[in-house]
Design a protein around this nucleic acid. Structure first.
Length: 913
RNA sequence: GCAGAGGUAGCGAAGCGGUCAAACGCGUAAGGCUUAGGACCUUAUGGCUCAGGCCUUCGUGGGUUCAAAUCCCACCCUCUGCACCA
């Protein structure tokens, strides 16, 4: 009994591949090139199975293209820009138990841990080495000569990034401005999602400030709904909170909560002086609504949250449940004083006359209920509402549009301002409450630029995207893409060449490095001083500057770039689609000529393990290194076939046994190969036809990165067809050998080690990647033969069914094939189904009166689906007689039927005795 | 909120107008093999039916069609991204 033992053979083949230099391609103008990459990873931990999902998918593509005759470049590098490496190092240094335990479990010793904590560079180098080791062990076909590390560890690469950013700046695509971020005042740093204990996903929301004048003072009401300003009946302040009169730079005296003045300071609205005052003294005084000049009273309300906005709110009772309820409370207290304040309805929603009241009745007047009602009302009114005659000049305008119109009006009247606020609470890991801060002099890359977007749109439309739906996602995201901050003050990275206290952040320094791969191994021969903008201009733009000398040395790099670029395929998981991939595309279209724009991208989902995404942070990741203790490389590579597209796919080790089984099946057939002979039978045509279809579908699926489907036909279907052929009496050695060779080729990209091994068992001395991909032979397709074999299989099913019904062991089975007249009618009907599947129509066209026609047309669901031939059916049954006898262990007779009503084409009559 | 994807038998997952009671894998059950277990092989696995038949199913509710898991509309639920965060 043969057993598949992957460990025994995998190292051997990895060494053979390495020695062959197969994966270190050189320029070869006789060959078409193919350049494929995966985004560079952060070496801040061990590579695990979740990562591998993406990389194996790329490696499979690289091997597939090599076998298809392409000169394939598949390099890999590493990313250390930004925070992750330093963050990891800091966590270890500060004794973070979770992190340390995970690493220890994965085999890091105390000495190494100590160094990790002290030296982020050591940490990065350590993990880069483990990545390389694990990549090799899993059989990745990388060209390691071109590896580099972005960015601060590699001055040559930094020069490249500087070149990129000077060019972007010279194109006017880098600007400086201010920008709101969530900020930790304790650590003095922006708070990303990963830095938060609470408030993940919270981002600054812009509140409109509308200035209501009251004598010398301004009441700056903060609101999310400026479109309701026509419906204001009063101003709310909270009598239980300390307020102050803050003198702003403009000289205006704003009445705001004490809290609010710090917020304003953070948002570049410095408060010059500030006097505490008794807010209660303003109650019942009048203020002026700037939109229409109407006077509205200032009233007390304890639901006004001192932590949000300015502490001054405008009251629109007809459109805000809290305001309505607040006014109600006051009216109950003092109906004379407040009785004449009437809610004003300014937004109409079709079919929703009493939207607010209904919502309040439905949700109640508890705090929670009012919040729900608020959400409900806001949503309906904003999306479906239209302003009415109470809204002055805005009458008839949709609420959605009115918002900006009203803001413009307020600006004209110098009654507008804005501030940022967090809707939910954000807490930093250090425990401090996060707040909004507007950063000054931040550098931006102008992804909002219309012309730039138009170019990118053109490229996306042209590009091949697997799977298809991702293209739509790219285009949609491009539409709302805004300017992006390109630099930060912390972490690692290349300084902005013109403002060196800012470091270029990771998503911005990783947009065009694929071009750098083409020269990465050569540029190191230069002195760093020689590596300047002119050099890059010459290589990448063919622009020869004054100081360019030593042309011959440069020429080699230029040739590499010209040969390998553009990038033909980039593979990644889906989370990079809406950020990295867009930046990658945008930078390419602006920095390179159109013939150097990327050709295709392939996106995959995640690997789930027991329903959860496999990731470092979830702690459910299995490192490749560990997994290789139990499984072989090819067995782990099977996980690349977990899915076809962007859906997340469940992976279980159980699939591995299915793989093992097929491999052992193949090994067994190879073992008995000498027992096969020369005889050719009808069934050969069936196997050849199946093989052709398998080649066709596997090839197509490989091309589209649909590996789940590819492995299904290349491995599972192919082996089971071969087993059927042999069990049904097939013995044609030449055919079987050709079949085996073909399926080894078809499986090689996914399972390179075992297929190379088995290929050598067949007496070959070449590696599979030195052979060529199987060619689909259309002439081998024999649909009638395939159909008739299916008829036999279906008949066996039928017989089984009957036997189980009548509950007796058969002694003899007689199978009656329909006569050729019936086949003729059958095929006539089949031909008609190509034009119409409407039974009445078929009947009308055919105009044949025959009980067989009636039978065929009885059920439109069961119309003939394929062409059948009487002689083939008869021959097939005769040839497979032994196969049928074997299944039932009794005598089988095949006869021709002339009159039997039951025998139909594709459905012979069956008599069981 | 905006955008994208998805809901299929006990589970994973194909199918994306007719050959669909739904591939394939796993699980489960019976039989074979074996001293026994494992592995392996065969068969069964929505319901009913003692001659190959019938009935009900593909998130929910409608619709289009001779025909819908597949197309259209509405609703419910799940996942993902949304920017200084890699």
């Amino acid at each position: 009994m043969v057993k598949y033992e992957p460990k025994a053979i995998e190292k051997k083949w990895q060494d053979i591949w390495a020695a062959s230099k197969l994966f270190e391609p050189e320029i070869n103008s006789a060959l078409k090139k193919f350049f494929i990459t995966v985004p560079i990873p952060y070496p801040d931990g061990f590579i695990h199975l979740g990562h591998l999902y993406t990389w194996t998918r790329a490696d499979i593509y690289a091997r597939f293209m090599r076998m298809n005759g392409y000169n394939v470049l598949f390099p890999q590098s590493f990313h250390v820009t930004g925070g992750p490496i330093i963050g990891m190092s800091n966590r270890i240094n500060s004794g973070d138990e979770k992190t340390i335990n995970v690493l220890k479990e994965q085999g890091v010793n105390d000495k190494e841990l100590g160094l990790f904590g002290k030296n982020p560079k050591f940490l990065a180098e350590y993990f880069i080495n483990t990545f390389k080791r694990d990549f090799a062990d899993i059989g990745m076909s990388f060209d390691w000569r071109r590896t580099f590390v972005t960015t601060s560890l590699e001055p040559y690469f930094s020069r490249f990034i500087e070149w990129q950013f000077r060019r972007l700046r010279s194109l006017g695509l880098i600007t400086q401005g201010s920008h709101p971020v969530v900020w930790c005042p304790h650590e003095n740093t922006p708070l990303g999602d990963h830095d938060r204990l609470a408030g993940e996903g919270e981002s600054p929301v812009m509140f409109t400030i509308i200035k209501f004048k009251c004598g010398e003072y301004v009441f700056p009401a903060a609101t999310l709904r400026p479109e309701t300003v026509f419906g204001v009946t009063n101003i709310w302040i909270n009598p239980n909170v300390r307020y102050c009169a803050a003198t702003m730079e403009s000289g205006e005296k704003w009445i705001i909560t004490e809290n609010a003045q710090d917020k304003l300071k953070n948002q570049l609205k410095p408060v010059k002086t500030c006097e505490i005052l008794d807010i209660k003294s303003f109650i019942d005084k009048k203020s002026v609504n700037p939109i229409d000049g109407k006077e509205v009273p200032i009233l007390p309300a304890d639901f006004v949250d001192a932590d949000i906005g300015t502490g001054v709110a405008m009251s629109v009772p007809m459109h805000a449940p809290f305001d309505y309820n607040g006014l109600d409370v006051l009216k109950k207290k003092d109906s004379i004083k407040y009785g004449n304040i009437v809610p004003i309805k300014i937004i109409d929603v079709v079919d929703q006359k009493d939207l607010l009241k209904n919502a309040m009745n439905a949700f109640g007047t508890t705090k929670d209920g009012l919040e729900k009602a608020t959400k409900f009302v806001y949503k309906k009114e904003f999306n479906q509402g239209v302003l009415n005659e109470n809204a002055g000049t805005m009458n008839g305008i949709a609420a959605k549009l009115a918002k900006n119109n009203i803001i413009d009006l307020l600006k004209e009247r110098k009654s507008y301002d804005y501030m940022f606020e967090l809707e939910g609470e954000v807490v930093c890991r250090c425990g401090t409450r996060g707040e909004v801060k507007v950063l000054e002099n931040q550098w931006f890359i102008r992804y909002s630029d219309k012309d730039w977007k138009a170019k990118a749109r053109k490229e996306i439309e042209k590009m091949t995207v697997y799977p298809d739906e991702v293209k739509l996602q790219l285009l949609n995201t491009l539409d709302w893409l805004e300017d992006k901050a390109v630099a930060r003050k912390g972490g690692l990275g290349t300084p902005l060449p013109w403002d060196r206290e800012w470091l270029i952040e990771p998503l911005s320094d990783s947009t065009i490095y694929m071009a750098y791969y083409t020269i990465a191994h050569l540029i190191k021969n230069f002195d760093l001083n020689e590596v300047n903008d002119e050099l890059f201009d010459y290589i990448f733009m063919n622009k020869r500057g004054k100081n360019i000398k030593n042309l011959s040395r440069l020429e080699k790099m230029r040739a590499e770039f010209e040969y390998w670029y553009p990038l033909d395929m980039r593979i990644s998981a889906k989370e990079l689609v809406q950020n990295h991939f867009l930046f990658f595309i945008l930078n390419h279209v602006i920095l390179f000529d159109e013939d150097k724009w990327p050709k295709a991208i392939g996106i995959n989902g995640w690997l789930r393990i027991q329903g959860q995404k496999m990731s470092k942070s979830k702690g459910n990741s299995l490192t490749i290194h560990k997994a290789l203790e139990t499984y072989g490389a090819d067995q782990l590579r099977l996980l690349a076939t977990a899915g076809n597209g962007v859906d997340d796919e469940e992976w279980s080790t159980l699939n591995i046994s299915g793989l093992n089984q097929r491999i052992e099946d193949i090994m067994q057939i190879i073992e008995i190969k000498d027992s096969f002979g020369e005889e050719e039978i009808e069934l050969d045509r069936y196997l050849k036809s199946k093989l052709a279809k398998i080649i066709n579908s596997a090839t197509d699926n490989y091309k589209k990165l649909r590996y789940r489907s590819a492995v299904f036909s290349a491995l599972f279907e192919s082996v089971s067809e071969l087993k059927f052929y042999i069990s049904a009496g097939g013995r044609n050695k030449n055919l079987i050998m050709e079949y085996l060779e073909t399926i080894l080729k078809l499986n090689h990209p996914i399972f390179p080690h075992i297929t190379d091994e088995l290929f050598s068992y067949l007496g070959n001395t070449k590696m599979l990647e030195e052979t060529t991909w199987p060619i689909y032979d259309e002439n081998a397709i024999d649909n009638i033969m395939e159909s008739e074999v299916e008829v036999v299989k279906a008949t066996v099913e039928d017989i089984r069914n009957i036997i189980s019904r009548i509950k007796k062991r058969p002694t003899k089975i007689t199978i009656g094939i329909a006569n050729s007249a019936r086949f003729e009618l059958y095929n006539k009907v089949f031909m008609e189904t190509k034009h119409s599947r409407n039974v009445n129509e078929i009947r009308r066209t055919l105009r044949i009166n025959d009980p067989i026609i009636d039978k065929l047309l009885k059920n439109p669901q069961k119309l003939p689906e394929k062409e059948l031939k009487q002689d083939v059916e008869a021959k097939t049954f005769t040839e497979l007689k032994q196969f049928i006898e074997g299944a039932f262990e009794c005598q089988v007779q095949i006869i021709q039927k002339d009159k039997d009503e039951k025998a139909m084409p594709g459905k012979p009559s069956v008599e069981i005795e």
